[in-house]
Simulated assay, not measured.
Amino acid sequence: MVSLETLTPFQDKPIEPWQFQLISPHNRIAGLYIYHFEWVFGLEYDGFPYSSELNTMSVSKDIRPYLEKGLLILIPTADVLERAYEMLIYNNKRPREPDERKRFEEFGTGPWEYTIMPGRWDRKTKKSSLPPLFDCSPDGTLIPFSFDDCDYDTLPRFTSVVHPLIVIMLHRMNIRDDHPSMTIQEKLIAPLEKVLCKWPEWQHNRFLPMANAKFKREYDVGRKIVCRCLRCLENTPSTTTASSSELEDTYTDDEEEVGKEGREDEYKELSRIANERISVWRGCLEGVASNHDDVKHDDILDRYAQECTDAADKVMLRQEEERAKREALAAEMQGDFPSKKKSRLS
Rank of each mutant, 00 (worst) to 15 (best):
E5I: 05
L7C: 04
T8M: 07
P9V: 01
P9F: 03
P9W: 04
Q11N: 06
Q19A: 12
Q19D: 10
R28K: 09
I29R: 09
Y33W: 11
D46M: 09
D46P: 00
P49Y: 02
S58F: 02
K61D: 11
R64C: 05
L67I: 00
E68A: 15
K69W: 03
A84G: 15
Y85V: 09
M87R: 15
R96F: 01
R96A: 14
R96S: 13
P98E: 06
D99L: 12
E100F: 04
R101Q: 04
E105R: 14
E105A: 14
T109P: 06
D122F: 13
P131W: 05
L133R: 08
C136S: 14
D148Q: 02
S160F: 10
H163T: 00
H163F: 03
V167K: 06
I175D: 08
D177V: 05
D177F: 09
H179T: 04
S181R: 10
T183A: 11
Q185F: 15
E186Y: 11
K187T: 02
L188P: 01
A190V: 12
A190T: 06
P191K: 01
C197H: 09
W199L: 14
W202N: 03
Q203H: 12
Y219D: 08
V226F: 12
R228S: 10
T236D: 06
T241S: 14
T241A: 14
A242G: 15
A242T: 02
L247F: 15
D249Q: 10
T250I: 12
T252H: 02
D253K: 07
V258Y: 07
G259W: 12
G259N: 15
K260A: 08
G262H: 01
S271T: 09
V288E: 03
S290E: 11
D298P: 00
D298F: 12
D298S: 06
A305S: 14
C308G: 10
D313E: 10
V315N: 07
M316F: 13
R318C: 08
E321Q: 14
Q334V: 08
Q334L: 12
G335C: 13
F337V: 11
F337E: 09
F337R: 01
P338A: 13
S339Q: 05
